[in-house]
């Protein structure tokens, strides 16, 4: 039977490294996606994702279950990303070939959703528009879009009220719509 997150947390707190490894395997991809959405650079996002789980390991004993493990780990991830963005030097979405070994090969058979020219232009403009959002606006957009999180969970992660989440989402979407008005 598969153990719940909370059971794995308790085992990790008791020093069971395999339990912690299982938690990492459950969340590493989603945490990486959220961080990439915020950092906009794969190399930086990978580094911050690994640091996030390292810090989570160091703090796991202080995790008391007041929130779910997933909001807790995203909170660490978002805070690390915001800190790292202040020091970030690389350009958004730069890709280094030395990182090939860390990612699964792309499925070439899968259809590129942005295959035709106009869609590709939309993707490029959307990517640029996301880059230009403030870290706070990026965070609500990414958590809502990738994870489909409720405003309550997003508020818990960002340390703000549901009303603030609603307001930030409204303004972030408005900014994106303004920049992409030619396509949408």
């Amino acid at each position: 039977m598969e153990l719940s997150d909370w059971q794995l947390v308790e085992k990790s707190q008791a020093g069971d490294a395999d339990a912690f490894q299982e938690l990492v395997s459950r969340y590493h991809q989603k945490v990486f996606m959220v961080i990439l959405g915020l950092m906009r650079n794969r190399e930086d996002a990978l580094e911050v994702a690994q640091e996030t789980f390292f810090r989570a390991f160091r703090k796991i004993k202080s995790f008391q279950g007041g929130s779910s493990f997933y909001t807790w780990i995203y909170r660490i991830a978002v805070n690390n990303s915001i800190d790292a963005q202040r020091k970030q030097k690389r350009n958004p979405l730069d890709f280094h070939e030395s990182m090939d070994g860390l990612f699964e090969a792309r499925n070439e058979v899968a259809k590129d959703p942005f295959a035709d020219v106009q869609d590709r232009e939309l993707r490029e403009n959307m990517s640029k528009a996301i880059n230009e959002l403030t870290p706070e606006h990026k965070a609500v957009i990414v958590l809502r879009t990738i994870e489909g999180m409720s405003y309550k969970d997003i508020g818990e992660i960002l340390g703000c009220s549901e009303g603030t989440v609603m307001s930030r989402l409204h303004y972030a979407r408005k900014k994106l719509q303004d920049k992409l008005s030619a396509f949408l």
Binding site: H28, Q29, F32, M33, L36, G37, R42, L46, L93, L102, F103, E104, R106, D112, P113, F114, R123, M126, S127, I130, V142, T145, I146
Partner: peptide
Amino acid sequence: VLSTEAPQL
């Protein structure tokens, strides 16, 4: 956009 940007780790 957000999901296609992220490769599978």
